[in-house]
C-alpha cells in the first residue's frame, strides 16, 4: 500500500520525535533580532524577518541576547546548532526533580509518576544536542533518566498481566513508552476481544462477571 507496512497502525520513533519537536521550550538567545525603534525609518538594508506559518513568529523576531524567550523546540535546536542560543532545561530535568520522581516510582508500585508526556524524547534530544546547557552533570542526569525508564518498564511488564478484552488505564505513561507497546497490546487485546465476542454473541444473559469483569486498576 502507499503507506509502508510498519507505519500503518503506529508511529515510528522519528515521528514521535517530530511531534515532540513542535512543543515550546525556553532558550537564552545569543543574538538580538529585535529592531530598535529608532533605526526603523533609516535607509540601508531592510532587516530580515522570519515569517513562519506553523508556529508563532513574533517571538523569533523579538529575541534579545541573554533574555530568555520561548520558541518551538525544532527552532531552538536549529539555533543551538549554530551556537546562537542555549536551551534552558525544563524543571523536571534536574537531578533533584528526577530523584523525586524515582522516589515516587519506588513508593507507589501501582502507578506511574507524573512525568510530562514527552519526557523520554525530550531528555534524549537535549542530552544529545545540548549537553553543555545543563546545570547538573549530564552523565548523572543520563543515568537518572535511565533508572526512571527501567523502573517504569518493570511496572509496564507487571501491568500487562491485566490485559483484557475491554480496556486498560495507563495514566502518565509517556508517548514513546505507549508507542513501543502499541503493537503488542493492541494485538493481544484484539485477540481477547474476538474470543470474548465469539463466545458471547448470542447469549441473552450477561457474561459471568467473575470471569470477564472489570480489570484491576493498574
Amino acid at each position: 500500500m502507499s503507506l509502508p507496512d510498519h507505519l500503518q497502525s503506529t508511529f515510528s520513533p522519528e515521528e514521535i520525535q517530530f511531534i515532540v519537536e513542535n512543543e515550546p521550550i525556553k532558550i537564552f538567545p545569543r543574538i538580538t533580532t529585535r529592531q530598535p525603534a529608532r533605526s526603523g525609518a533609516k535607509g540601508g538594508s531592510p532587516p530580515i524577518r522570519c515569517t513562519l506559518i506553523t508556529t508563532d513568529d513574533a517571538s523569533i523576531n523579538q529575541l534579545v541576547a541573554t533574555r530568555s524567550s520561548e520558541v518551538a523546540l525544532w527552532l531552538a535546536l536549529l539555533l543551538k546548532q549554530q551556537n546562537k542560543c542555549s536551551i534552558i532545561a525544563p524543571q523536571w530535568l534536574t537531578l533533584q526533580a528526577l530523584d523525586r520522581s524515582i522516589q515516587f516510582e519506588k513508593t507507589h508500585p501501582d502507578r506511574f509518576s507524573a512525568m510530562p508526556w514527552n519526557w523520554l524524547v525530550l531528555a534524549q534530544l537535549l542530552f544529545k544536542r545540548a549537553p553543555d546547557d545543563f546545570h547538573d552533570p549530564v552523565h548523572d542526569l543520563r543515568s537518572k533518566v535511565q533508572d526512571l525508564r527501567e523502573i517504569r518498564q518493570l511496572k509496564v511488564l507487571k501491568g500487562l498481566r491485566h490485559l483484557n478484552e475491554s480496556h486498560l488505564q495507563l495514566d502518565n505513561l509517556s508517548l514513546l513508552e505507549v508507542n513501543e507497546l502499541r503493537p503488542f497490546v493492541l494485538d493481544t487485546m484484539d485477540r481477547l476481544r474476538e474470543i470474548h465476542s465469539a463466545a458471547n454473541q448470542d447469549t441473552i444473559q450477561p457474561a459471568p462477571a467473575d470471569q470477564h469483569g472489570y480489570p484491576e486498576p493498574l
Binding site: R161, R191, I195, H196, A199
Partner: peptide, 25 residues
C-alpha cells in the same frame, strides 16, 4: 474463534482467553 462462534462454546472461550494471556506474556 470460528469454532466458538459456531457453537457458542463459552467454556472453551474462557480456557482460550486464559491461554492467550499466558502465552502473550
Amino acid at each position: 474463534i470460528k469454532w466458538i462462534a459456531l457453537f457458542g462454546d463459552a467454556e472453551l472461550g474462557s480456557v482460550i482467553a486464559e491461554m492467550v494471556m499466558e502465552r502473550s506474556l
